[in-house]
Write a protein that binds this DNA or RNA. Structure first.
Lengths: 133, 133
DNA sequence: GCTTCTCTCCGACAAATGTAGTAGGATTCC
DNA sequence: GGAATCCTACTACATTTGTCGGAGAGAAGC
């Protein structure tokens, strides 16, 4: 019961996305970006979200000249991974296969993505064929 | 503000999974399966979860001879899809490509799954090459 | 120096979710 | 038919998350 695995709420994720997309920012910056994205929240709301994110170790802050500057401590890929893992665990008891098949069946891809996909599959094949790691 | 899009909590999802895996069940059945899976909750907790799921229209119940029998009203695939869509929207503003690539890169697959994957990619390729649907 | 603005800190509150207890009706078992 | 059992309904409470207001400290203008 020591380290609790914190989750990200929707509002928190939106804040994190601002940091991913625009780099380090103050509360006021984040607020401006949130507004631009259609999330109309109060200044203190943005502040609370950033504080909570910091408490959960998703961001860190530095006291610059005037106001605190927040920056992400986790990458978008990392969060994606974690969410996918949770999804896979929750829905398929850890088997990622069905999920991927689902995704490929139902989503649209660009030719480039298909190529990349093919590339990855090829790599998987190789791993599978010579299991001496 | 008419129809709220309800979310599924973790505990609720566990209950839904029991119904997916074992078919229609009473509160007691569900409880037994939850216990078997390591989720040690009280009878009334299972009951509350089922009630809430019904209120959210994820399950429905029929009064059989003795106790209510609950059954899922949504498929696992449907829920998966919805969650994936949310994930894609939240993290990549709707672009599924990066997500799939992530998944394939980081998860493990059985040879069978790799084959199926290859099959799907082939189909995608074909679609992409002769765009006359 | 005083007013004003802006920032941080702290507290607050509602909704959703996880968890469970109690009351009372229905069923079953002698 | 009374005791034990099982079911449902209702209530309750803590935590997490989304949202924000007020108090007080430091900046800035005049």
């Amino acid at each position: 019961m020591a380290l609790k695995q914190y989750e990200l709420g929707d509002a928190e994720l939106d804040v994190l996305k601002v940091l991913w997309d625009h780099g380090p920012a103050t509360v006021r910056d984040v607020l401006a970006h949130l507004h631009r994205r259609g999330r109309r929240v109060a200044y203190t709301t943005a502040q609370t979200l950033l504080t909570r994110l910091e408490h959960k170790s998703f961001v860190r802050s530095d006291k610059s000249e005037f106001a605190y500057v927040y920056r992400a401590r986790v990458t978008r890929d990392r969060v994606t991974r974690s969410r996918l893992d949770t999804l896979v665990k929750q829905l398929y008891d850890g088997a990622a296969g069905p999920l991927v098949l689902q995704l490929i069946r139902t989503e649209r891809f660009t030719p480039q993505e298909v190529d990349q996909l093919q590339q990855l599959i090829d790599d998987l094949d190789v791993e599978g064929e010579s299991p001496d790691d």
